[in-house]
Amino acid sequence: MNAGKVWTFGDNINTDLMLPGPMLYVSDEEQKNAVFAANRPGWAQIVEPGDVLVGGRNFGMGSSRPAARSLRNLKLRCLLAETINGLFFRNAVNFGFVALECPGVHAAFEEGETAEISIENWTVVNLERGTRLAIKPVPKQLLDLMTNGGVFPFLERSGLIAPVA
């Protein structure tokens, strides 16, 4: 079942909150543990693989830092937000983190409810309430990157960058 427990966040969640400046120098593992440390301390420690992040407007605003990589490393199933910041979306595509726009999603879920997502049908269902919402389709080229580990595996296969040792 492609479903996960929902965590809700509001509008204008910025990348400084997901990847605080002082964490830019540390390992992926430590970065992942610092997600939302300023606005929701301890969250990164209790969120579980397969959980779903629900956001408001302009999710991921701010700097180009690889915040999407930290969300991917937390093994979240996906992000569903009212709107997603263009730069954050690029990073999500490129780091292989599934980030989808879904108008109405913020009001449609309370924290702790379960979201069932279908990318084939571009829909999300609130399993507690039985309500269904449409997800905005992502162009195929970008969806392929997003769901297949991002751009680095492609560049490796193309002989442009070396695989990580």
Binding site: S64, G150, V151, S158
Partner: peptide, 13 residues
């Protein structure tokens, strides 16, 4: 402004 991966993509391709 792009992310680090976009930058690598542009620099290599």
């Amino acid at each position: 402004g792009v992310g680090f991966p976009d930058m690598v993509y542009a620099a290599t391709t």
